[in-house]
Measured scan of single mutants.
Amino acid sequence: QVNIAPGSLDKALNQYAAHSGFTLSVDASLTRGKQSNGLHGDYDVESGLQQLLDGSGLQVKPLGNNSWTLEP
């Protein structure tokens, strides 16, 4: 069960990665100043990332080996 409060997208993504045990490689300029609506409930990694990114204009991309990145 994930419980991440709304706020900074950077912070939300870092909390989610730490909670879910995956690696997220992101260029900080992509997420700077963006906000997230947070995340509450049970999600697989990709669904949770998509939910956190909702409205940010960013997309999640798998890199393999439980690693992910973001792209515009």
Rank of each mutant, 00 (worst) to 15 (best):
D27P: 09
D10W: 14
H19V: 14
R32K: 12
L63Q: 07
Q59V: 14
L24D: 06
D54S: 13
N3G: 03
D10Y: 13
G41S: 01
I4E: 02
W68N: 04
T23A: 08
Q15S: 09
L30N: 03
E71S: 07
V60E: 04
R32M: 12
A5R: 09
S29F: 10
G48K: 00
E46L: 15
G55Q: 06
G41W: 04
A17G: 05
L13A: 01
I4T: 02
G55W: 03
T69K: 09
N3W: 11
L30A: 04
V2Y: 10
A28R: 11
Q1K: 13
S47Q: 11
S56T: 15
Q50H: 11
A12Q: 05
E71T: 11
G41R: 01
A17D: 05
K61D: 01
Q15C: 12
L9W: 01
N65C: 09
G21R: 07
N3L: 10
V2E: 02
Q50W: 11
S20K: 15
L39S: 02
V45Y: 05
N37I: 09
A18P: 03
Q15N: 07
F22V: 11
S20R: 13
A12D: 02
G64P: 07
L58E: 01
L70P: 04
D44P: 06
A17W: 03
N3V: 12
P72E: 12
S29V: 09
N14W: 13
S36W: 02
Y43L: 05
N37S: 10
A5D: 10
S56K: 03
L24E: 05
Q59E: 08
S56G: 00
P62V: 09
S29P: 04
D27A: 07
Q1R: 14
A5V: 06
W68R: 04
Q15H: 08
A17Q: 08
V26G: 08
G48T: 03
G38I: 02
T23P: 06
L13E: 01
S29L: 09
A28F: 09
T23R: 06
N65E: 10
A18T: 11
L13N: 01
G41T: 01
T69E: 09
F22M: 09
P6K: 08
D42G: 08
S47W: 06
Q51R: 13
S25T: 14
G48F: 06
T23V: 11
L9S: 03
N14Q: 15
H40K: 12
Q59Y: 11
G57R: 03
D10C: 14
S25E: 14
R32I: 12
W68D: 05
I4S: 01
H19Y: 12
D54V: 15
K61S: 07
G57I: 04
K34M: 09
K61Q: 06
P6G: 08
I4C: 06
G64R: 00
S47Y: 09
Q15E: 15
N65D: 11
P72N: 07
P72I: 12
V45E: 00
W68G: 04
K61M: 08
L49N: 00
V26R: 00
S20Y: 15
A12T: 07
S20D: 07
G64I: 02
D42L: 14
L13T: 01
D42N: 14
S20M: 15
T31P: 02
N3Q: 10
L52C: 03
P72D: 07
S56D: 01
G48Q: 02
L63G: 07
E71C: 10
L58M: 03
K61G: 03
Y43T: 03
L58Q: 00
S25L: 15
G7L: 00
P72S: 10
S67C: 11
I4Q: 02
K34E: 06
L63I: 11
H40G: 03
S29E: 14
S20V: 15
S25W: 14
S56M: 09
G55C: 09
L53V: 12
F22C: 11
A17L: 06
S36I: 03
L49S: 00
T69S: 12
A28E: 13
A12H: 02
A17S: 07
L52Q: 01
D10Q: 13
D10E: 13
H40L: 11
G41Y: 03
N37D: 08
P72Q: 10
Y16R: 02
A18H: 10
L30R: 00
S25M: 15
S67P: 00
F22N: 06
E71F: 10
Q50L: 12
V60N: 01
E46Y: 14
V45K: 04
Q51L: 14
